[in-house]
Design a protein around this nucleic acid. Structure first.
Length: 586
DNA sequence: CGGACAAGCTGA
DNA sequence: CAGCTTGTCCGG
């Protein structure tokens, strides 16, 4: 018989965050003593929450549970999860993009399939020497930096410079780019894990981690440097809320880890120039990495029906060069045509063109009559959208060239046609890999677009085109047809000098108070008015609430610190609310 | 999120 | 007032 009660051994209590959108609270659970060694920060567990079992992350270890709550034990240990530093980063990102919970970030940071077995750390076959290019290696000595490399430059030396420091995290714009980078690292003797499939090997350390946007959330115990390739590329921003940007997460992760972060781009965004120190090559080398640019002033051409074809273009399409023509026809009617008989889909009642709002029916633009998705002439159900602009121009171009011109669509299931002459929207720039000439038939469509980032986006298209044709010493050409030959985008392309755009942009954004001169957010949805009112009522100094315009409120502040703190302090009203920090289309 | 339970609406 | 819908709250 015991004289004294033995003190209960201090049971381990962990705080978990359920993997459910809509639950923002954390809950505390007991860890059975036999599992104590298997539970760490980030571990994926299952717990009984009220009437059901849910997946969850351990977000805090050894916590003081609230009083008067009977703790339940964890039901199951499911697998490994993000490390503590990544969980901290997720909490920061929740604040930075005004999300309700860090759950979306933790999901991105977690392996796709449960990881239960430990991988062994990677071992390098031989060390990677520092780059002998002083500009490149030097970019890793200051932090953070944005390294401006022209479109034709090879980024592999940058990746190798990062690998010379230890385990690098390399963020790419596409799966194909990350595969290319991984192959080159592998050849250099660096074991490489591709995110997310290589999650477990990344978490074991000793490897380079390569991937697209989501890979910035990879768990890496010995992270030594971060490289973001093509920082200016819009694929780096998530389009669904929270609209987080790879550049900002990479910079914050590097800052927290105390490691260098190098952003590369031929035309760094103003955001990057604000946050990082600019490192450039000498002027001549940079210029040589941009292609030869021909500017055709459309004001000087006679404005007949072929106004889209300058004499320079006519000469090129009649040569034996492989020419890709780009024509964006924003705001023009998209028509539907039968995939088999090519007849235009029209209203069977009034003959006007029809739209396809969903998958299952057609609606007349004029009389509103609806009918099933069937071709009225041949009965086929395969209707395709035709870009009226491109199709018309394709016919005209064919007449000019005297040979076939193929249309390149954005449709990934269509094969990329192998023809000397092609035409398409900007999607063609993503689908074709090489050309002798890329011709922008109407660059003014891009230059005059109303989005505040239009100029950067236009130059980004020229960069894409430049990659298809190569640098100045090759035979490639980019042809810009424009009525604004003095526009800074045209001049920047012509001289291979992106500073012309960033300087003009900085002035414009300062004058009109657009990012990154201010931090901006947009609020819409049924609860937007209530949210805006509360925010206004809170009277945060220097936080401006303007609107609503088309049901959208615009909130600006001098910086994200003030903007996000203000957004975070608002108690969310009930009802649907869309809150976008750093909106791009404005 | 999804279940529990409470407060409102309808029909006899 | 039963029977159902709609809303609000809560979970460890």
């Amino acid at each position: 018989m015991k004289l004294f009660e033995e003190p209960a051994p201090e049971a381990l209590v962990v705080r978990v965050l359920p993997d459910q959108t809509g639950i923002t609270k954390t809950f505390d659970y007991l860890v059975p003593p036999e599992w104590a060694g298997r539970v760490a920060l980030g571990t994926r567990v299952r717990v009984q929450l009220g009437p059901r079992r849910v997946g969850a992350w351990v977000v805090d270890i050894d916590v003081e549970p609230p009083e008067g709550v009977a703790l339940k034990p964890i039901a199951k240990i499911s697998g490994q999860g993000p490390s503590g530093d990544v969980i901290g980063l997720a909490h920061w990102a929740r604040w930075r993009w005004a999300a309700r919970t860090p759950v979306p970030f933790l999901r991105t940071a977690s392996p796709e399939r449960m990881v239960t077995t430990l991988s062994s750390p990677g071992v390098r076959r031989h060390p990677v020497p520092p780059s002998d290019d002083d500009v490149i290696q030097g970019a890793f000595r200051r932090r953070p930096t944005v390294l401006r490399l022209p479109p034709a430059a090879d980024v592999i030396p940058v990746v190798q410079a990062a690998a010379s420091l230890g385990d690098p995290l390399v963020l790419c714009t596409s799966r194909s780019q990350s595969e290319r980078v991984a192959r080159r690292l592998d050849r250099a003797g660096v074991p490489t894990a591709h995110h997310p499939d290589g999650w477990g090997r990344a978490a074991a350390g000793g490897v380079a981690v390569v991937g697209t946007r989501a890979a910035v959330w990879a768990t890496m115990p010995d992270l030594a440097a971060i490289v973001v390739l093509d920082e200016h590329d819009e694929v780096h921003q998530e389009e669904r809320t929270p609209t987080w940007h790879l550049r900002d997460v990479a910079l914050e992760r590097a800052r927290r880890a105390g490691v260098p972060c190098v952003l590369t781009s031929p035309m760094p965004s103003l955001e990057a120039l604000e946050a990082a120190e600019l490192v450039t090559l000498d002027r001549a080398t940079e210029r040589d990495g941009w292609p030869r640019v021909i500017v055709a002033d459309r004001r000087e051409e006679d404005l007949g029906r072929n106004a889209l074809f300058s004499p320079a273009l006519a000469r090129l399409v009649r040569s034996d060069a492989r020419v890709v023509c780009i024509l964006n026809q924003k705001g023009r009617a998209v028509l539907l045509a039968c995939g088999s008989c090519r007849d235009l889909a029209r209203c069977t009642r009034c003959d006007a063109s029809v739209q396809r709002p969903g998958d299952d029916h057609l609606v007349c633009r004029r009389c509103g009559d609806t009918r099933p998705v069937v071709c009225a002439s041949c009965g086929s159900t395969q209707l395709k959208t035709v870009r009226m602009g491109v199709s018309r121009v394709r016919d005209d171009l064919e007449a000019l060239a005297g040979e076939p011109v193929v249309e390149v669509t954005a449709d990934r299931s269509d094969p990329v046609p192998d023809a000397r002459l092609a035409i398409g929207t900007e999607a063609a720039l993503h689908r074709i890999e090489r050309a002798d000439v890329v011709a922008f038939l109407d660059l003014d469509q891009e230059l005059l677009a109303t989005r505040y980032r239009a100029a950067e986006q236009a130059l980004a298209l020229v960069v894409r085109a430049a990659r298809l044709v190569g640098g100045r010493h090759g035979s490639g050409r980019v042809l810009l047809q424009t009525r604004m030959p003095d526009h800074e985008v045209v001049q920047a392309a012509l001289h291979g000098d992106p500073t012309l755009v960033s300087e003009a942009e900085r002035i414009r954004r300062t004058d009109f108070r657009f990012p990154p001169v201010v931090a901006m957010a947009e609020v819409s949805g049924e609860a937007a008015d209530a949210f805006a009112e509360q925010l206004r009522g809170a009277g945060h100094p220097q936080v401006d609430v303007v609107g609503p315009v088309d049901g959208r409120w615009r909130i600006t502040a001098p910086d994200h610190e003030r903007l996000c703190n203000a957004l975070d302090a608002v108690e969310r009203p009930p009802g649907r609310l869309r809150l976008v920090v750093d909106p791009t289309r404005s």
